[in-house]
Nucleic acid binder design. Structure first.
Length: 170
DNA sequence: GAGTGCGTATAAG
DNA sequence: CTTATACGCACTC
């Protein structure tokens, strides 16, 4: 198994993104809008042991198009985390495009109804934004809740998805 | 063992 | 809107 990762930059309607992938699949997707250098540094910290890294913006562009619905193509993901984190992320992956779930519902779905806060922490650690749709997990009372890149981006992602679904139904 | 966090519920300013 | 209390649990140090 190779220790090589490929990263690249791309953009989408919500801003610039960085994408990384291993031999196994996409391992990282983050927005760069507000903290470009910090985000790149975070990726280097997380995947630093995987060398050498090569840049491939075409790869990033393809992933971006899949993530934002312009390209219907299955993407292999390379999710790495604790057993608990993987259970949470797998559950989040089940949330359909255009829908939302509460942190409470996700906790119940994995059989840990009292671990709501831990579920939220795990979701906050999600390394693959959008593809693992942690933006679709909101508060029980319907408010949007926190997001790494701000509540406003979370709100725009959710509303854009709902608009897309409505458009396709008409 | 202590501190932390993308929550929830309730209460209060 | 914000702060405060309590509950709960994975995770870090």
């Amino acid at each position: 198994m190779s220790n090589e990762i490929v990263y690249g930059f791309s953009d989408c309607r919500f801003g610039d993104i960085i994408v990384a992938r291993t031999e196994q699949g996409v391992c990282d997707l983050q927005f760069l809008d507000f903290n470009r250098l910090e985000t790149i540094h975070e990726l280097a910290e997380r995947w630093g042991e995987y060398t050498p890294t090569t840049q491939d913006d075409d790869m990033a562009h393809t992933v971006s198009r899949v993530a934002f619905g312009q390209l219907n193509h299955p993407l292999q993901l390379d999710l790495r985390g604790t057993a608990f984190q993987l259970r949470v992320w797998q559950e989040v992956l089940k949330i359909p495009f255009g829908q939302t779930r509460s942190y409470q519902e996700v906790a119940e779905a994995i059989g840990e109804p009292t671990a709501v806060r831990a579920v939220a922490t795990a979701i906050a650690q999600n390394p693959i934004a959008v593809l693992v749709p942690c933006h679709r997990v909101i508060h029980s009372d319907g408010t949007y809740g926190e997001y790494h890149w701000g509540r406003d981006l979370k709100r725009r992602l959710i509303e854009w998805e709902k608009a897309q679904v409505n458009k396709n139904q008409q």
